[in-house]
Design a binder for these strands. Structure first.
Length: 466
RNA sequence: GGGCCUAUGGGCUAGCCUGGUAUACUUGUGGCUUUGGGAGCCAUUGACUCCGGUUCGAAUCCGGAUAGGCCCA
């Protein structure tokens, strides 16, 4: 299966061959995380935890089920999610008086509790997050990690004394994103979603999108400014220094297993996955090359090598199966292990190990004496090279245009827009592209709306989406 | 929401029209041999989605259920 020709089929093919997820579970859109896939996801979660803990967020875990009465408190929110939630209507043989919804996201689970937790300005800011599964009844075609009905999801929720403080939180979120994306070697861009496309209940939404090699964008996360839209119906108030009671200002930040889908789609090739070293379940695989005469010597050397790498903090797999080396090479190439180390009689004689890079195929040797630093260096070179390659692919897909005649397939387009909803819908319907929003960092623009020709003071981004 | 299609070992698949012993490859298991890019030989486990109907006899024909896929709104 070839990535260039048929991205969709290629993606499904390598996800299956690398055994990241088992889609044979008999509920559509609910796949089983296999050990290998779950390790990769857990490593991504690890980066999220690290960055959030470092910025003063506390991890929590709220119940999965939300009573209908709480779920329906914020009107826009319920309108946005009504058609895609799962309901629990029975418990045992009894019909429930108050139906329960499986969280599609946790605002309505958390905010009644926030109302109890927050009393004084001393309690603010409140910054919590959780990494849990959420449920959305997707009607479009499902696809492992990219569109599923049970979603492995990260969400942070914050409460602040003022809109300014909430804005500072959003700036912090953007900064956290840049660090996580660096580990994943994943380029992205931010746009402020249009009013008709923002999160139900939000004051505004920042979409985080990345571009797949087929030129379609994939939303990998979002950041929302709620102002007091939720704190009003949920009555989350605090008493300020002057004894006045005020509503808190809130933000949320969410990302999901799509991060893994994006990483796979971005870096992998026709031979299989290429895991960025930071999230690879195994960063190196050690393959002993034994022969009849030196079996014991080589096996011991391989074991010692793997142990040394592990001690030095490199996630290492020793593949000592009784199989031919070539077949092991193919196996680990499919699974995307970034660095392969071979050790055989020849290497031992020369005091080296032979390495092969998964990303470039380059082969060489490292001295056995400094094998851990040597492997570290190669891993960081692999990260840098993946990052650079992805960045270039990303850049090459950005295009600024001034007329619909210039629309080309597989590009992220930027053009002048008057800002009205009518023009937005007209554009989407005519060209089958989605308006992603205005660039997050405001740009000075003086020109005309590409759709209606009126004066425009902003640009907008549009693309085909996955 | 409307329509179309599919369901056979772990995976992929032949057989279905024209009813009678279910095919190949792959994987798995055991053994011998082998190991610097998918080794070979021998032995072996393993399947007709479910319920009902027609029939002497159903993977095959008919009806329904379930699950999955595709197209249109």
């Amino acid at each position: 299966m070839e990535k260039e020709d048929n991205f969709g089929d290629w993606y499904l093919d390598i996800v299956e061959k690398a055994n990241l997820s088992d889609k044979r579970y008999p509920v559509k859109g609910m796949n089983v995380w296999t050990p290998y896939g779950w390790k990769a996801m857990s490593n991504i979660d690890g980066f999220i935890r690290k960055e959030l803990d470092a910025t003063g967020h506390d991890e929590v875990c709220f119940p999965l089920m939300i009573p209908e009465t709480e779920f329906k408190k914020e009107k826009e929110h319920i309108k946005g999610f009504d058609s895609e939630v799962y309901w629990v209507t029975h418990a045992g043989l009894n019909e429930l008086d108050v139906k329960l919804v499986l969280r599609p996201t946790s605002e309505t689970a958390m905010y009644p509790m926030f109302a109890l937790w927050v009393r004084s300005h001393h309690d603010l800011p409140l910054k919590v997050y959780q990494i849990v599964n959420t449920f959305r009844y997707e009607t479009k075609q499902t696809r492992a990690f990219m569109r599923v009905r049970e979603i492995h999801f990260f969400e942070s929720h914050t409460c602040h004394v003022s809109e300014e403080d909430a804005q500072r939180q959003i700036a912090e979120d953007v900064d956290i994103l840049s660090k996580i994306a660096r580990s994943l070697c994943l380029p992205y861009f931010l746009s402020v979603r249009t009013d008709w496309d923002k999160f139900p209940g939000a004051y505004y939404t920042i979409g985080i999108d990345t571009v797949m090699p087929n030129g379609r964008t994939l939303q990998i996360g979002s950041i929302h400014q709620y102002r007091t839209n939720f704190s009003e119906p949920y009555e989350i108030t605090y008493e300020d220094e002057n004894g006045e009671h005020k509503h808190v200002h809130q933000t949320t930040y969410g990302m999901s297993e799509r991060l893994l889908g994006a990483v796979i789609g971005m870096h992998s090739d026709d031979k299989g996955l290429i895991m960025p070293p930071d999230i690879a379940p195994f960063q190196t695989v050690v393959i002993p090359i034994v022969s009849k005469d030196n079996r014991q010597q080589v096996t011991e050397a391989a074991r010692a090598l793997a142990a040394e790498l592990s001690v030095c903090g490199i996630r290492t797999k020793l593949d000592d199966r009784d199989a031919r080396p070539g077949s092991k090479y193919y196996d680990w190439e499919i699974k995307g292990v970034p660095l392969r180390l071979e050790i055989g009689g020849r290497d031992i004689e020369n005091g080296v190990v032979t390495f092969a890079r998964r990303d470039t195929g380059e082969k060489g040797t490292i001295s056995l004496k400094s094998v851990a630093p040597g492997a570290e260096l190669l891993l960081s070179m692999i990260s840098a090279s993946l990052r650079e390659k992805a960045e270039m692919s990303h850049m090459s897909k950005m295009e600024e245009i001034d007329s619909p005649d210039r629309i080309s397939e597989g590009k992220i387009l930027k053009f002048g827009w008057c800002g009205c909803e009518e023009c937005g819908h007209k554009f989407e319907d005519t060209y089958g592209l989605k308006i992603l929003g205005t660039p997050y960092l405001p740009e000075r623009y003086e020109g005309r709306c590409m759709i209606c020709g009126k004066d425009a003071d902003r640009t907008v981004l549009a693309a085909r989406t996955m």
